[in-house]
Amino acid sequence: MGEILRLGLILMLVALVAAVALGFVNSKTAPIIEEQERMRRQEAMRTVTSSLGDSLQFDSLAVEGLANPYAMVDRRLAVVAVSDAVSGDRLGYTFVAYGKGYSSTVQTMVGVDSSGRIVGCSILYQQETPGLGANAENQPWIGQFEGKRISQCSVRKDGGEIDSITGATITSRAVSDSVREGLEAMREQDLFEGGERA
């Protein structure tokens, strides 16, 4: 019995030392990782909305009754309002779309103007097949979303105007469908003026 106790104690000691060491390193790296993630999102937000203006302001928006089109992948639709930093006029929105791809949940940062037209998309995260689905984050593919309206935002096979990546229909569909679903949920709540109303 004493033997088992001794061995258990040694094992516990090793695990404890490991946990303390990692806790220390984590306290150093966690803020950096968080900051980097925040910067990346910020950067992506700026990129996808760059055509809306030079000095923009981003405020997260609480929309009452907003549906969650991403329940399948256990994420939420979080809308950020984009307005002119000087005049305060609402220029558009950004949100992150989550779509189940071939081997990962693809995250796309989407920018739309206030009429519901897409002004830019950028892939935030994907683990799709290199050489096939992973090409979704590159130009010219992701650029074709620019200027598209809700009804056009699906792959050609499904009646939309997005060209699929050769050999990666699943990824193409994941991105375009998730983007469209987000836009549709926003349209339901009358966030868009002009043509795109529910």
């Binding site: 094992l11 090793v14 695990a15 060491a21 990692l22 790296t29």
Partner: peptide
């Protein structure tokens, strides 16, 4: 014990890489 030691270093690499080579 070896597994804990190895896992510790792996977690270390994981954190550091995530912070400096995202």
């Amino acid at each position: 014990c070896y597994i804990v030691i190895i896992a510790t270093f792996v977690t270390l690499v994981d954190m550091v890489m995530n912070a400096y080579a995202p």
